[in-house]
């Protein structure tokens, strides 16, 4: 049932539009509520105008075990300033008041959602206007927890495929996935190693034998040039840590946002977007 419902969504329309233009998707990640709710709202709402095609909002968690130092720190900043799962959904609601096209994917860890209640969470995702979920610590073995309720509610389930995902496992990993596939180009946590373009090319070619879904590549992309070279081999790229690092650079000694924070982040995002669309 969900397959048809998920065939015409903000995410599928987004990738279809880009494919028609022979363009690549730029997926930008920001942690919800980093450094505080108001600034985060301004950052997120300005992303489409800065050239972002799909927005990933991180749900802050105290113990983000798959993330590197940049995103860990952003999660801590958000939590210190009172961010919660419920407020992350508020960010989506606010965004949707002015933008009904740009897809939003929520990325996070399972525990806050489990505490909130999986069914309640997926219902509220739908009414808030989120389009998909990436939950790092829910492998296919645990699909009954959240993946299946999410599909039933009409949300895309996007999984990370990694260099350690071998042929024996890939069908299981791609099962239930829709919208796009997120290929992690390096072994390790977010933001710490550089993705090598030739590795990406081979890996994406291999993945194409198993899926017709668009493939976005992330983890370790830091510059517009780098974004362009990786985008050549994939359908989209994901940038998170490099953007989140820029948030941190624009905080004063007390951790308050400097005046230029929002414009600096959007300017960097614009440069990446230019790199991707020149690819």
């Amino acid at each position: 049932m969900s397959a048809e419902r998920l065939s015409d969504t903000r995410i599928t329309r987004c990738f279809a539009r880009l494919a028609e233009r022979k363009s690549k998707a730029f997926v930008a990640f920001l942690t919800g509520g980093d450094p505080n709710f108001e600034t985060s709202q301004q950052l997120i709402c300005g992303l489409p105008a800065a050239g972002v095609d799909l927005i990933e909002i991180g749900i802050p968690f105290s113990d983000p075990m798959a993330d590197g130092p940049a995103i860990q720190a952003s999660s801590q900043r958000a939590l210190r300033n009172g961010m919660t799962l419920a407020k992350t959904l508020d960010l989506v609601r606010i965004f949707r008041q002015t933008d009904n096209d740009t897809p939003i994917v929520l990325m996070g860890y399972y525990n806050p959602i489990y505490r909130y209640g999986a069914d309640r969470f997926v219902q509220e995702c739908v009414t808030a206007g989120a389009d998909g979920l990436i939950i790092v610590d829910l492998p296919p073995e645990e699909d009954a927890e959240l993946c299946e309720p999410a599909l039933t509610a009409g949300l895309h389930w996007i999984r990370l495929v990694t260099p350690s995902t071998d042929d024996s496992r890939i069908d299981a990993v791609l099962h239930n996935v829709s919208g796009f596939v997120y290929y992690i180009s390096v072994l390790g946590v977010t933001g710490t190693r550089l993705a090598m373009a030739d590795h990406v090319e081979q890996a994406v070619e291999r993945l194409r034998q198993y899926t017709d879904l668009p493939i976005a590549v992330g983890f370790g992309i830091k510059t517009p040039e780098h974004a362009r070279s990786v985008a050549e081999h994939a359908d989209g790229i994901v940038i998170g840590s490099a953007i989140v690092d820029l948030v941190k650079l624009n905080l004063d000694d007390q951790g308050h946002p400097k005046e230029a924070l929002v414009s600096e982040v959007h300017e960097f995002v614009r440069q990446i977007a230019a790199g991707v669309s020149n690819g």
């Binding site: 492998p139 645990e142 350690s164 995902t165 496992r169 992690i184």
Partner: peptide, 12 residues
């Protein structure tokens, strides 16, 4: 119990 880990660790 269960196996709530990132995909990178699952094969391992």
């Amino acid at each position: 119990g269960g196996r709530f880990v990132a995909e990178t660790l699952m094969p391992l």
